[in-house]
């Protein structure tokens, strides 16, 4: 299988129109906001952006236009945000962690400098990954898995959604902490990884909970652990990996999604957006919508997002160093 390159369509759709000019006295926003998303319409990061920007449009009294610019794992979205930014502070973006943490390492040149070009606004949500195996396999729990993986080199073959993807790096971090080596088989989507696990071709995979859970309910898959620090609302019965089978108590690997602005955007505008989005994320309805597509709301300040970028760049950079050294 493989739809190797998702050449998906991308349209910007006017999401919601202003109900009332509630902030007419403020100068900003002077027109519709454009939010660049580096993934195609209908994808999980796109849906997340739409869930957030719909109430945002209402609160700001201006429509928010989602501009889908898919490609290169989200890098093109940021490039296009920067290329199309004017001096009216109306151009923004959402991004997953990859383009602002590991992309520069993987690609050499992304066309932008995270520290110099991007102003973080706030984290929106995080997503852990789960370690999934086939229910036909004899792998029952994390101890058993680590023992099987350690039996000989590359005894376990695992699938990921691509070289350098979150799933790949998480698996390598896991293997490093467990002191084992596993055979990496890159795929392009969780659908392919799922089929391959169910067909018995590969043994395991780190997957998004939303991609794995339906198959657990259907009896085809088993989940051995989750990479968040606490059990997730999406998979409440799944034990966290941290503190189990010899893993450190602070083992944590999460993907995240955040709201960004081009640097040079007025600080007051960034602050206003941070506040608005934090309030939007406090709404239980919004939280539930996010959870349905696999994201756990995780608002924070711009400063916190900046720290997360720095910390993750360092952590994943170390994992990439080890992969390259092999």
């Amino acid at each position: 299988m493989t739809t190797h390159i998702p050449r998906r369509a991308a349209f910007g759709c006017v999401l919601a129109f202003a109900a009332a000019p509630a902030f007419a006295q403020d100068a900003w926003p002077t027109g519709p906001l454009h939010v660049y998303v580096g993934f195609p319409a209908g994808s999980s990061p796109d849906t997340l952006a739409r869930i957030i920007t719909e109430p945002l449009a209402e609160r700001l009294g201006q429509p928010v236009v989602i501009e889908n610019r898919p490609g290169a794992g989200g890098v093109i979205g940021i490039q296009q945000m920067l290329a199309n930014a004017g001096d009216d502070d109306l151009t923004f973006g959402t991004t997953i962690n990859g383009p602002v943490t590991t992309a520069a390492r993987m690609m050499g040149d992304t066309g932008f400098d995270v520290a110099a070009d991007i102003a973080p606004v706030t984290l929106i949500a995080t997503s852990p990954l789960v370690l999934a195996v086939s229910s036909q396999s004899g792998l029952e729990d994390l101890e058993g898995f680590v023992a099987a993986a350690g039996a000989e080199e590359e005894a376990i073959a695992y699938g990921s959604v691509g070289q350098g993807s979150g799933a790949h790096l998480t698996a390598e971090l896991f293997a490093d902490e467990a002191g084992v080596t596993m055979l990496h088989i890159p795929f392009t989507s969780y659908a392919e990884v799922t089929t391959s696990i169910m067909g018995g071709e590969i043994d395991a995979g780190f997957m998004a909970p939303s991609a794995a859970m339906p198959h657990v309910e259907g009896g085809n898959m088993r989940i051995l652990g989750i990479t968040s620090s606490e059990p997730s609302a999406q998979a409440p019965d799944v034990p966290v990996i941290a503190g189990q089978a010899g893993f450190a108590e602070d083992f944590r690997a999460e993907l995240w999604n955040g709201f960004i602005a081009p640097s040079g955007t007025d600080a007051a505008v960034v602050e206003r957006l941070t506040t608005e989005i934090t309030e939007i994320l406090a709404d239980p309805g919004v939280q539930e919508q996010l959870l349905a597509i696999g994201w756990q709301a995780a608002p924070g300040t711009a400063q916190e997002m900046q720290e997360r970028i720095t910390a993750d760049t360092q952590m994943w950079g170390g994992v990439i160093d080890r992969i390259e050294a092999q």
Partner: peptide, 19 residues
């Protein structure tokens, strides 16, 4: 990808596609 898009539409409605 088109099928994935349609499944995505179901997920938004709270329908968990699967077996």
């Amino acid at each position: 990808p088109i099928m994935a898009l349609m499944l995505g539409a179901l997920v938004i409605h709270g329908v968990q596609p699967g077996p």
